[in-house]
Simulated assay, not measured.
Amino acid sequence: TEFGIDARLVLNATGPWTDHLRAMEDKAAAPSVRLSKGAHLVLRRTSPWKAALATPIDKYRITFALPWEDMLLLGTTDEEYEGDPREVSVTDSDVTQILDEAAFSVRDQQLSRDLITYSFAGLRVLPGGPGDTSKAKRETVVSEGPGGMLSVAGGKWTTFRHIGRTVIDKLSKLPGRPLTEDMEPMRSLPRMPLPGIANPQAVAHRLLVDGPAPGPRMAPDTARHLATHYGSLAFDIARLANEDPSLAERIHPDAPEIRAQIVYARDREWAETAEDVLRRRTTLTVRGLDTTEVRDDVAKLLADRPS
């Protein structure tokens, strides 16, 4: 599909699709980036686990084992990926590699395939060039096409300020009135904290002390879960459970989430489907607990949206 864009600057920040868009601007554009796939596994724990563990595999790579949501997160792989970014997935060889590498420092009984509840994979955007992707530097790639499109790709979470500065510098050099002038009024706006920002321990304590009532007090694991995921917004969820005791029930007996979170996701977070709730707004899918019964319950609550 062809379409036109009329703008002083078009910023291409599409990650693994960077070169796809560059080719739309210039069919002769040479590749500027290459992709590296990283896969991860989530497993049920066989014993308590609190420490983050990193184990060197070679000169360039490590494997890690992290406690996450009362489970164990293992990873990661690093191999060149040349397929469609939409089709990236975890393969059986990825699973074998992660478990084999974790075995250098994790007990065998914790590494059974039967304990795997979830797996996921993503793509790193690296500078183009030869060699093993595990040895490639995690640098930012910036290029400008013949039509003026600025492409920014790669980097790391820790370099996002540098990436943003690169774009702002480009904006400031455009002909005509600098677009950066439009940003000046924003500098005088008061700084607003993120919604729900609060001390999780303080929030969890209040949830345990205050309710919901009538009925049993909130379970400690549910209070911790709500406090760490929602901050002070957890009180809105507790209020729903207080008004309707059925919403204080767990979505699944083996997970800390309660049914009030479904209603909150429906009414405050635009959740439309069971997938929205189970995979994106709770940990039920990651825990391997999105059973038919759970999905039916979630779907029913979503369908009961107030008119």
Rank of each mutant, 00 (worst) to 15 (best):
P245M: 04
H225S: 11
N12W: 00
E80Y: 07
S188Q: 15
A13T: 10
L9A: 08
V152R: 00
G288D: 02
H162R: 11
K27Q: 15
R259F: 05
T158C: 06
E293K: 13
V125M: 04
T291F: 15
E272P: 13
S232V: 12
T46F: 12
A198S: 07
A260H: 01
D108K: 15
V263T: 10
Q110P: 07
G154C: 06
M24I: 12
K27A: 15
G231H: 07
N199Q: 13
E257R: 04
L208E: 05
R250W: 03
D276L: 03
T159L: 04
V88W: 00
P85G: 10
E257Q: 13
A213L: 13
K170E: 15
T273W: 02
T140I: 15
E101I: 05
V263M: 10
V298S: 01
P256F: 01
L150E: 03
R191T: 14
Y118V: 05
M71F: 11
A23R: 11
K59W: 15
A65F: 00
R165A: 13
I62W: 15
T285I: 03
D58N: 12
T283H: 06
L194A: 10
V106F: 03
A30K: 08
R161W: 04
L226V: 09
A223R: 03
N242M: 15
W49K: 08
R206N: 10
N12M: 03
D254M: 13
H229G: 12
L126I: 06
P306G: 06
R161Y: 06
R281H: 10
I197Y: 14
A7S: 12
D114H: 08
L66M: 06
L53Y: 08
L226H: 00
S134A: 14
V203W: 01
S105K: 03
H229Y: 09
A213I: 15
P130Q: 11
T222N: 06
P67C: 07
E184N: 12
P56I: 14
V298I: 04
A7I: 01
R86T: 11
Q97L: 11
A198E: 05
T273G: 14
P193E: 08
L301S: 06
I168Y: 11
S89R: 13
V141L: 09
L301G: 06
R224M: 14
E275D: 12
T158K: 07
L73A: 08
V106C: 09
V277A: 05
S232P: 01
R217A: 07
S188V: 13
A223T: 08
S105E: 05
A29N: 05
L174C: 10
G75Y: 00
N12D: 10
P48K: 12
Q109E: 15
E269H: 07
T76H: 03
H252W: 09
E25I: 03
V142G: 02
L174E: 05
S47H: 15
